[in-house]
Design a protein around this nucleic acid. Structure first.
Length: 436
RNA sequence: GCGGACUUAGCUCAGUUGGUUAGAGCGUCGGGUUGUGGUUCCGAAGGUCGGGGGUUCAAGACCCCUAGUCCGCCCCA
């Protein structure tokens, strides 16, 4: 039986054309992050199991990670997310780092679960974090950066929504304002998370089922619905509007609007799954109903660094997956034409590979990326190969050209041909590359 | 982890209620005379129909198992 050529379940091969797209996406992400003064870091793909047990739900660690025991009996996990790792790194140098600390990374992450639209087993995720800022200036900057990322990809404000809420606020609503016990709070959090995907009546039925008889009698579900159906902070019951976090969030949204972020809104259904978030949380969703998934999510997690036994560091950060980003760009037709990194394809007329080495070295020395066809096939076949590789310029080298130093340069897009010396050829190809 | 749909040539797919040597388009390769691609023309190669088992005189088609892909659910990094 022949070996399978398929990549591992839920993971992708990146052929050169796929890698071009990845390089474009990552390049844009890096540019925006560095534009805001964020520095890139990285870490091992393997981490000890303990790192995740402390802060993530047990089900996630046990059933949704790749884990194994190594030869030294250590429990090892292939990282399913970057936040614990970066917290570990910051904690390790807690005293010596210069705050505010602005870091980013684009790690590959693994999760053991069934692949589906927008969710694979291996994906890459931009992680951006700011450490050491306790005030909402940190959230403001992070949201601004997020918005810049979308703008850098050419997205318009009506293509995506930045939705904000507060974990601290929701805890208050569920525990104090509505009086739910801890089990109920967690059930309601999950239900509210799915609210936008459900019919209102189905939601009310499920919410009702979670209430005790006395809560039902007190009309708790109606009270809940009136909170959840508030379209903005001003629509909330007055008692909730004046909650400290709502006051801060309200001011933040105003500041963001002033800074040119027109599509950031309060959305009470944004919950986020993780326990480590401590206050403001946010998501960015695609406005295209066919890609109804959160593309990016994050928030404030002030407690994580402190788990390593050092003084806690207030932190705001987010993760942004490459799969959902690619879906977004494709869906909104935002992908540019991506070309080969090879600028020039040299075809040889006749058996002259040895003699052609000098001009090839000169072209490379002057900075062009040059590939040469070594097949010895007919000229037409060599041209076909250049075309198939998506390389615009072809240079013909034959006895004639070697003799007079004038080489035939052909543009495969226009079909035009011209003869020049090597330096002129380099400048033509380079100018074209820059205008692409 | 649970449920549903699907799997036929390199790719996208046809294949009628089971019935001879399983088809198309695109792609690939060769040719239209020796230094010019995309278009066009001619020709060729390429499939034990995902794998295994069963029903039948006969299975690509029906049944069971298994793998993979996709879509939901759970969960969400």
């Amino acid at each position: 039986m022949a070996l399978s050529t398929q990549p591992y379940k839920g993971a992708r091969d990146f052929y050169p054309e796929d890698k071009r797209l990845q390089k474009y996406m990552f390049g844009t992400l890096r540019r925006v992050c560095e534009n805001f003064g964020y520095e890139e870091y990285d870490a091992p793909i393997l981490e000890p199991l303990d790192l995740y047990l402390a802060k993530t739900g047990e089900e996630i660690v046990n059933e949704q990670t790749y884990s194994f025991t190594d030869r030294g009996d250590r429990q090892v996990v292939i990282r399913p997310e970057m936040t614990p790792t970066v917290s570990r790194m910051v904690a390790a140098r807690r005293q010596e780092l210069a705050y505010p600390l602005r870091w980013y990374s684009i790690p590959n992450l693994w999760r053991y679960e069934r692949p589906q639209k927008g969710r694979l087993r291996e994906h890459w995720q931009l992680n951006v974090d700011i450490f050491g800022v306790a005030g909402t200036e940190a959230e403001h900057e992070i949201i601004l950066l997020t918005d810049q990322i979308f703008k850098a990809f050419g997205a318009r404000a009506d293509m995506y929504s930045i939705r904000l809420n507060s974990r601290k606020f929701m805890d208050y609503v569920l525990a104090v304002y509505l009086g739910f016990d801890e089990v109920q709070q967690s059930s309601f959090a999950k239900l509210i998370d799915r609210m936008n995907k459900m019919e209102r009546t189905a939601f009310v039925v499920q919410a009702d089922a979670l209430c005790s008889p006395s809560q039902r009698e007190a009309g708790i579900v109606d009270r809940l619905m009136s909170v959840l159906e508030s379209k903005d902070i001003a629509g909330l019951p007055v008692e909730l509007q004046t909650h400290q976090t709502m006051v801060l969030l309200s001011a933040m949204l105003e500041a963001l609007a002033e800074a040119g972020v027109s599509n950031a809104v309060f959305d009470i259904t944004v919950m986020r799954g993780f326990d480590y978030y401590t206050d403001i949380v946010f998501e960015v969703t695609d406005n295209d109903p066919d890609n109804n998934r959160s593309m990016m999510g994050g928030g404030r997690y002030d407690g994580l660094v402190g788990l390593f036994g050092v003084e806690p560091v207030p932190t705001v950060g987010f993760g942004f997956g490459d799969v959902t980003l690619a879906e977004f760009l494709k869906g909104h037709d935002l992908l540019p034409a991506l070309h080969s990194e090879t600028n020039l394809y040299v075809v040889l007329a006749g058996d002259i590979a040895a003699k052609a080495q000098k001009p090839l070295a000169d072209l490379r020395g002057m900075g062009l990326n040059v590939a040469v066809d070594l097949s010895g096939r007919k000229l037409g076949d060599q041209l076909k190969t250049a075309d198939k590789k998506g390389i615009t310029y072809v240079l013909v080298i034959g006895e004639q050209e070697l003799a007079d130093g004038q080489f035939t340069l052909k543009n495969l897009h226009t079909g035009a041909e011209e003869k020049h010396g090597l330096e002129r050829i380099v400048s033509i190809v380079r100018d074209h590359r820059h205008t692409e």
